[in-house]
Deep mutational scan, measured.
Amino acid sequence: TYTWNTKEEAKQAFKELLKEKRVPSNASWEQAMKMIINDPRYSALAKLSEKKQAFNAYKVQTE
């Protein structure tokens, strides 16, 4: 089980997950979700809006 003390740690864990699963920077949210949804870190960020925000930040960083 994973635990995160801060929102920032949770966001980092979520981005690490995207990186580890090699989600391409041109992937849509739907494509990315299919690649990461079974990992416990997918739940790091509770709100869908937070997940999408972190995903978009990840995409910008990896382009």
Results as ranks from 00 to 15, higher is better:
residue 29 W to P: 01
residue 33 M to P: 00
residue 7 K to R: 07
residue 17 L to W: 01
residue 56 N to W: 14
residue 60 V to R: 15
residue 6 T to R: 01
residue 48 L to M: 13
residue 24 P to G: 04
residue 9 E to R: 02
residue 56 N to L: 14
residue 6 T to F: 04
residue 11 K to D: 13
residue 19 K to A: 14
residue 59 K to G: 04
residue 44 A to P: 01
residue 24 P to R: 04
residue 59 K to I: 13
residue 1 T to I: 15
residue 23 V to W: 01
residue 6 T to N: 08
residue 35 M to A: 06
residue 45 L to H: 02
residue 40 P to S: 05
residue 37 I to M: 13
residue 33 M to S: 08
residue 23 V to P: 04
residue 57 A to Q: 11
residue 44 A to V: 04
residue 11 K to M: 15
residue 31 Q to N: 09
residue 63 E to W: 05
residue 60 V to A: 13
residue 44 A to D: 02
residue 19 K to C: 14
residue 32 A to C: 13
residue 35 M to P: 00
residue 30 E to C: 11
residue 10 A to R: 15
residue 58 Y to Q: 02
residue 4 W to R: 04
residue 15 K to L: 15
residue 54 A to Q: 06
residue 17 L to N: 00
residue 18 L to Q: 00
residue 54 A to D: 02
residue 58 Y to C: 04
residue 24 P to A: 07
residue 12 Q to P: 00
residue 56 N to Y: 15
residue 6 T to I: 04
residue 46 A to Q: 14
residue 63 E to Y: 06
residue 33 M to T: 06
residue 33 M to D: 05
residue 12 Q to V: 09
residue 3 T to S: 09
residue 54 A to S: 06
residue 38 N to A: 14
residue 8 E to H: 07
residue 34 K to M: 13
residue 42 Y to D: 01
residue 51 K to D: 02
residue 11 K to H: 15
residue 6 T to V: 04
residue 58 Y to R: 01
residue 28 S to R: 07
residue 31 Q to G: 07
residue 6 T to A: 03
residue 41 R to C: 02
residue 37 I to D: 08
residue 16 E to M: 09
residue 46 A to M: 10
residue 2 Y to A: 14
residue 59 K to W: 04
residue 5 N to F: 13
residue 51 K to F: 04
residue 37 I to W: 12
residue 41 R to H: 01
residue 25 S to I: 13
residue 16 E to S: 09
residue 38 N to M: 11
residue 47 K to Q: 11
residue 17 L to R: 00
residue 63 E to L: 11
residue 10 A to N: 04
residue 25 S to M: 13
residue 60 V to W: 11
residue 16 E to G: 09
residue 41 R to M: 02
residue 3 T to E: 14
residue 14 F to N: 00
residue 18 L to A: 00
residue 2 Y to W: 11
residue 52 K to I: 15
residue 31 Q to H: 08
residue 4 W to C: 12
residue 34 K to A: 11
residue 18 L to I: 04
residue 54 A to G: 03
residue 26 N to G: 09
residue 40 P to K: 06
residue 22 R to K: 11
residue 43 S to K: 14
residue 26 N to C: 13
residue 38 N to V: 07
residue 30 E to G: 10
residue 47 K to T: 14
residue 12 Q to R: 09
residue 11 K to P: 03
residue 46 A to H: 10
residue 26 N to R: 07
residue 12 Q to I: 09
residue 59 K to P: 02
residue 34 K to F: 10
residue 32 A to I: 04
residue 25 S to Q: 13
residue 52 K to Q: 09
residue 3 T to G: 08
residue 48 L to R: 05
residue 3 T to D: 12
residue 61 Q to M: 14
residue 54 A to E: 10
residue 9 E to P: 02
residue 41 R to L: 02
residue 3 T to A: 09
residue 20 E to N: 05
residue 52 K to M: 11
residue 38 N to D: 12
residue 27 A to R: 03
residue 44 A to W: 04
residue 50 E to N: 04
residue 56 N to C: 13
